[in-house]
Simulated scan of single mutants.
Amino acid sequence: MADRDVSKVAEGFTYTEGPRWYNGRLYFVDFYTYSVNVVNPDGSVEEVAHVEQQPSGLGWLPDGRMLIVSMKDRKVLRQEADGTLVEHADIAHLCTGHANDMVVAPNGQAYIGHFGFDLMGGADHEFASVILVDTDGKAQTVAEGLSFPNGMVITPDERTLIVNELFGNRVSAFDIKSDGTLGPRRDFAAYDDLGDEKSWHKRVERSTIIPDGLTLDAEGAVWVADCAHQRAVRIAEGGKILDEVSTAPYGVFAVGLGGDDGRTLFLCVAPDFDETARSAAREARVDAVRVDVPHAGTP
């Protein structure tokens, strides 16, 4: 694994997530300041939206309006041209935990995962689903039985959705049908089967990877934020680990490829993901490192 120079892009945040390169700028969220932020060309960071119920996944409709997951009230918000936020979809009836990460397809359909259980409250692990929100805001469940579906990408041909399963020790893939619904789950990269183990702590202990954020490159490999192991790993379909970037002593909770040539890997890092600890500190940041293979797909 090559040694690489890691640079700081933005610092002084609570818990950064959702890095997205869009129209030549990096966007990201900060959970406990409830902010959606953009990094300007001069390196300054500007808040572009405030989501009181905690922002997570980001994406854009074909007309350029931004969609934002509002985690705790389990909604998808839409930012209008004047900057105001309106409800795009209410998905609370389909979620069994906080709404979480999202990918918005080029046609405007959005795929959203959720926790499946009360992670911060200490509940037992329960399997969760992927929700499809159509362009008119109508929502439906399109995949079930996933262990905390998290980072998601869509391949360049728009035919495959790839989904991290945070506590599942695997990355899953689904064919995307013409109406946006999904075919059966299959393995993109899978390690030991964790079965129905109810303790998420034990699931973590038994896992090869703890895949949080996700981004796709032009050779069909994915970079995964392997959060509990303090590294970003590049994984080929089939599960072979091709490369890694250490973020020790911090964990890395989201990744995104971007930059003008698509070869900058952005890393959202923090000491841990404990809500009480992170909301009380300003230790999280966004880092960047150069990689060899450029970005592909969505986001």
Rank of each mutant, 00 (worst) to 15 (best):
S35M: 08
V38L: 12
V9A: 04
A236D: 10
A10P: 03
P62Q: 13
D175Y: 00
G113F: 04
D274I: 14
G113L: 05
A296G: 04
A189E: 02
V76W: 11
H201P: 00
P41W: 10
G259C: 04
Y250A: 14
E126C: 12
V130A: 03
W223T: 12
T160D: 12
E244V: 00
D124Q: 14
G256M: 12
H88Q: 14
V252T: 13
P55S: 02
W21C: 12
G137C: 05
R290F: 00
K198W: 00
S7T: 14
S172K: 05
A110Y: 03
I210F: 14
A270H: 04
P271Q: 07
D134V: 01
I68S: 06
R186D: 00
D243L: 06
S246F: 10
H295Y: 14
V76Y: 09
C268E: 09
A123W: 06
L182T: 01
S279E: 13
P294H: 09
V224W: 08
V39N: 11
L161N: 09
D101A: 08
E158H: 15
Y15Q: 10
I91F: 01
V133D: 06
E87P: 01
M152F: 02
P211S: 02
Y34L: 09
T181R: 09
P299R: 13
H114R: 04
A281Y: 01
P156K: 10
S199A: 12
L216K: 06
I210G: 12
G151A: 13
V104T: 14
A296N: 03
V76Q: 05
S279N: 08
D261Y: 04
R20V: 15
E144M: 08
V269F: 07
P149Y: 07
A232D: 11
D136R: 06
A92E: 15
S35K: 13
V6Y: 00
V245C: 02
G239A: 09
